[in-house]
Nucleic acid binder design. Structure first.
Lengths: 253, 253
DNA sequence: GGAATAGTGTCTCTCAGACACTATTGC
DNA sequence: GCAATAGTGTCTGAGAGACACTATTCC
């Protein structure tokens, strides 16, 4: 990292002296935001949370939730993401992963701008979408609707796609989608989640072997009863940690 | 992405009117830089390029090359990375990959700052380190020397580790390290590169099967002669594209 | 018993690891 | 021929896919 000017070269300043004279606002910096794709499963489909922009630019268009870094409130980058997530959904400890950073001269009409894209996975039950603080218009959009039904503001179609691609890639070799389920779940429910993201059926035995052998979940002792044989309920052993499998799920050949 | 103020709410401005009144400099934005780990292989070891900081803060310390986004010269984020790489090494088309973005209040004493970490892979032969434009002190550091021998400025030890971890992870399931070799290479040379990054021996037959079956390289028709049986020379089929293997290299069991 | 879903037994297939083997050069 | 490195044949083994099978519930 270099300074942009030759400040600091001036004679022999100590670092303390240098910092005293340094004014970050002297230099032009790009706009800096964090945007996020919050995924959940509803009605056996993957959905992402969208917010209708109430302000210029892109007023009236749907967009991924996000916003500027608050230099006072946020200690680190991920705090901005957590803060936005909390505002929209009321959740404060979801699975959160940084995906990619996009920056260019043109992506925002206000000028050179940079945004860090995150994705979050939350269990459908956890959300109380009505309770969002800002009373903005918010929607759970089925992912097939992007960009046809919901053509997103700025380059958010691209950000969304990057997040979605990451999620689809990871379903093949990690246990990550487990974060879309509530605390207790059955193996069939878990398999369903994987199938939804993967977009194809998985062979039941293979899937169960894979999950059980990985030792990432344990029986809770409870069962889920329905109109048939009750299913054992499981919970994750080490919350937050994803297991990496040595081979990809291939799906049907 | 939301605006930070209620500018834009003012009556019913059109977007054009809004943008005319908008001044990006009114708001406090974090410092924004790009830093990169440029990897190469020298003397059968992985090395990374370091620059000695000639300016405050962190003057006199080693750091990853990088710098501020130039809002005029750089059209997109990756241009900043490419520009810095060109300045230090004279190379303009290496393998370049975005790794992770770090931002916090404390990582730079000048204030809230964000940096996007990239890594680059270059063939040792390509570099003319002497020809770097800025006449800074530059070194190829063996990666074991970080952070003991080279304790990097800012949080660059962390950035470096993130880049190195990404590279080590990818050697297991992609053909990416091929970018560390010159145009023409033998299979033994390629295997050596993989072993250096992986940190362990790979079984020759498995490795060759994996690479040949993936169809990512082709014989050039030339051979490399030494004091023994000549080796066929290969070159990559689709430059820049990495192959993803369905299973990880495991190394010896 | 029948429908429905949970859960298992076991064979096949693919691809990585192991390791001994052969091939081709310089000396 | 010998050393050195290039390159191959082929067996084993882990873990995924296929698919038929059994188990347990509600009605």
């Amino acid at each position: 990292m270099n300074t942009k000017s030759d400040l600091g070269q001036k004679e022999q300043l100590t670092e303390k002296e240098f910092l005293k004279e340094y004014n970050a606002r002297e230099y032009e910096a790009p706009l800096m935001t964090v945007d996020m794709a919050i995924f959940t499963i509803r009605k056996d489909k993957l959905h992402v949370l969208l917010v209708k922009r109430a302000q210029h630019p892109g007023i009236g268009k749907w967009a991924l939730p996000g916003g500027f870094i608050d230099l006072v409130k946020d200690k680190q980058l991920v705090d901005t993401a957590r803060r936005k997530l909390k505002e929209k959904t009321g959740i404060d400890t979801p699975y959160l992963e940084q995906v990619e950073t996009f920056g260019s001269r043109r992506r925002d009409p206000r000028g050179w701008s940079v945004t860090v894209a995150y994705f979050a996975l939350i269990a459908s039950e956890d959300i109380d979408i009505a309770s969002n603080e800002t009373s903005e218009e918010i929607v759970w959009a089925a992912i097939e609707g992007i960009p046809k039904k919901y053509n997103l503001a700025f380059d958010h179609n691209v950000l969304f796609q990057a997040c979605y691609d990451r999620l689809k890639a990871k379903v093949q070799y990690t246990s990550l989608p487990i974060n879309l389920l509530p605390q207790e779940f059955t193996l069939s429910e878990l398999q369903k989640i994987f199938e939804i993201i993967l977009g194809s059926k998985i062979e039941k035995k293979s899937f169960r072997r894979r999950i059980i052998d990985a030792n990432i979940i344990g029986e809770t002792g409870n069962v889920k009863t329905g109109s048939n044989r009750p299913a054992k309920l499981y919970s994750v052993n080490a919350a937050g940690k994803s297991h990496y499998f040595p081979r990809n799920i291939e799906g049907p050949r």
